[in-house]
Simulated scan of single mutants.
Amino acid sequence: MPLKASPADQALLLDLQQLDTSLQQLAHRARRLPENAALEAIEKQTAELRARLTAEEGTAEDAQRELSRIESDVAMVEAREKRDRDRLQATSSQKDIQALEQELASLANRRSDLEDAELEVMERVEQHTAVVAATRAELDEMQATRENTLAVRDDALGGIDSERKQATANRETIAAKVPAELLALYERQRERYGVGASHLRARVSSASGVELTGSDLAAVRAAAPDDVLLCPDSQAVLVRTDESGL
């Protein structure tokens, strides 16, 4: 036996469909907030900055290790020079004096070369340290931008969530008024086809946007007001009202 429901009960499905459409639109808005795309871009840029920082820190650490090695070599040369000077003051052997003076001259040249290298490496350490500091500053700025964007996104989501809760509450109120079998049909058609109810207005189905053909329109006209019909194109429950143009 075909499902029957009063025109008033069938008309409730239009309100239900309107709320379901609103809920879908709210979910779409939540997914498509511009802040979501901005956050994705920020995450990508942050990952790139972190990778760059890791490489820059590695370069700076290599330069610092090189500087430490040179400083150690300088300290060793200076210690050797002190030892030779002490020995030079303590010896009276002409042969030892000549050998120590030659070694001190060689050590002076070695220390001069090391100090030149030390200055060059110190400059590189300073440059690499500045680069690392600049990248860290970029990361800090990016983090601040991320936090601000999150705040804006969460505020927008809060507004959408309030609308969703209100629409859900209204939907529950209306659904409670719809006869169980009619509601089950609506839910089934909505799940299968995306739309549960379609308003027939001026002989056009709102769900499909298509005007009913002559034969379909004749079948609708022949149906009793409490007959539950389906739209031939969208398969949604076809709700007839005074605007249907029958």
Rank of each mutant, 00 (worst) to 15 (best):
A11N: 15
E57Q: 11
A90R: 07
Q127G: 09
L26M: 09
D154R: 05
A75V: 04
T59V: 15
E48L: 10
A222V: 07
Q94G: 12
R192A: 13
D84V: 10
R80D: 11
E141W: 12
E187T: 14
D96M: 07
E81I: 13
S162C: 15
E243V: 13
E191R: 15
L26E: 07
L212A: 05
A105R: 12
L23C: 00
P2Y: 10
L200T: 05
Y186Q: 08
A202S: 15
T91L: 03
P34C: 01
A108M: 08
P179A: 02
Q98Y: 13
E147A: 06
S198Q: 06
E147L: 05
T213C: 08
Q89E: 15
T21I: 11
V239A: 00
H28R: 15
R124F: 02
K95R: 14
L100Q: 05
A207D: 07
T21H: 11
Q25D: 14
L19W: 02
K4I: 12
T46Q: 08
V77C: 08
K44A: 14
E138G: 05
L88F: 01
G196H: 01
S234Q: 02
A63G: 03
A197D: 11
L150G: 02
D84P: 12
D226A: 03
Q45W: 10
R136M: 06
D96Q: 09
R164Q: 08
E35N: 01
R146S: 04
E181D: 12
N36H: 08
A99K: 07
D20A: 14
R65H: 09
D73K: 15
D216V: 05
L3A: 00
R164C: 03
R240K: 01
D154N: 05
L88A: 01
R190D: 11
E40H: 04
L229C: 00
V74Y: 00
V228N: 01
P232G: 04
S106V: 14
A79H: 12
A105P: 02
A144H: 05
A223F: 03
R171T: 01
R80V: 05
I97A: 13
A79C: 06
T129V: 09
H199K: 10
E61K: 14
R83H: 11
E181T: 10
R136I: 02
A144E: 08
S215Y: 10
L13D: 08
A63D: 08
I42G: 00
E101W: 09
D161R: 14
A8V: 11
R153K: 00
D216T: 09
D20T: 12
E48T: 03
L19T: 03
D140Y: 11
R110G: 09
D226M: 02
P2Q: 10
A202H: 15
A37M: 09
M142N: 12
E78Y: 09
A47V: 04
